[in-house]
């Protein structure tokens, strides 16, 4: 019917990046399950999936009360030992009955929420990602579920909670359906983004990988923008600008790896976002700006040195 999910992205609450074994420990959320780690082209660690049971109203733009019963899949990821993510999603499917069944029925289809009664996929999708959709009382709260999973990582005793700079979490809310390929990425507030995706073929978890990959890069871009903004280039002395920009060099610049973890059949979605609005274009221009500022500052230091040396 429809798949919907949420990705929360934030800076890992640690002073430096964490090692691969530390990632494994931080993300080891379940006994007997391994943390999956890929090292190329960037270290990416993914926790095992966990489920949360729900029986509640689903979002609906029309305001109608649609009941859904089932489980939400959640997982956490750490990219480059530095960026933490919590991610949850549900596949919606029509229930064959209009009453709630024994719980074992729902656990036989992990990650599926069965929709009881009449409902239109478009109404639910619009209710979830649409601008100004009514917030129904007792409605499925993926933000809370996902936030709790990210908190699990961020409050791990293995982290020292001394992040080099403060950066709010971003929330990407997404819906995916099967159909003619299309992608719509929208920035709402400072922290909120939505993504509507129509993909050919049936849904697979690769779609979730794509959303998580987009969320990481959107967060990187947002964070670098904030760092550059906070540096107040031109309004502050060069030395101070350089000091304010240096965390970006230490912690962010090397993390840009668009579509690194995206299945080949889904890379066209990334490519289309690269054409418009051009994530990488903006990233490169920001990176250039940071490097130019640091270069100018270095040159100033060098010439100041030369002057004092020459006297």
């Amino acid at each position: 019917m429809l798949v919907m999910g949420e990705v929360h992205t934030g800076l890992l609450q640690n002073s430096g990046e964490i090692s691969e074994p530390a990632c494994r420990q931080v993300l080891g959320l379940m006994t007997g399950e391994t943390v999956r780690v890929s090292r190329r082209p960037i270290v990416h660690a993914l926790s095992p999936d966990r489920l949360t049971g729900v029986d509640c109203v689903l979002p609906a733009a029309s305001g109608s009360r649609i009941r859904g019963v089932g489980t939400v899949v959640s997982r956490c990821a750490v990219t480059g030992g530095r960026v933490a993510q919590g991610s949850s999603y549900v596949r919606l499917a029509r229930s064959e009955t209009d009453r709630r069944l024994p719980w074992s029925h729902y656990l036989a289809r992990p990650g599926v929420i069965e929709v009881l009664g009449k409902a239109r996929a478009a109404d639910i999708a619009e209710g979830f990602v649409g601008e100004g959709a009514p917030r129904l009382h007792g409605c499925l709260d993926l933000t809370a579920v996902t936030g709790r999973f990210l908190d699990l990582v961020q409050t791990s005793p293995l982290l020292n909670r001394r992040a080099p700079f403060r950066m709010p979490r971003t929330i990407l809310r997404w819906v995916a359906e099967t159909g003619e390929p299309s992608i719509a990425f929208t920035l709402h507030t400072e922290q909120e983004r939505t993504l509507r995706l129509t993909h050919p073929g049936p849904f697979t978890p690769a779609v979730v990988d794509l959303c998580e990959d987009l969320a990481v890069h959107d967060w990187l871009l947002t964070s670098l923008l904030v760092v550059v903004e906070r540096a107040r280039v031109g309004a502050t002395p060069a030395a101070e600008v350089a000091a304010r920009l240096s965390p970006a060099v230490d912690h962010l610049l090397h993390l840009w790896m668009p579509a690194a973890r995206v299945e080949e059949r889904l890379t066209p979605f990334w490519e289309s976002l690269e054409r418009r609005p051009g994530f990488s274009r903006q990233w490169r221009s920001l990176v250039d700006r940071v490097r130019d500022q640091l270069a100018v500052h270095t040159l100033a230091l060098l010439s100041a040195n030369a002057e004092t040396g020459g006297r």
Partner: peptide
């Protein structure tokens, strides 16, 4: 070493009463 009981405990997903919307932990 295999801790099967812990392993199964971690796989428990509580049967949610109606009006469980995920806003609070089970």
């Amino acid at each position: 070493a295999v801790e099967l009981a812990r392993l199964v405990e971690d796989r428990l997903v509580d049967d949610p009463p109606p009006e469980t919307d995920g806003s609070r932990p089970p």
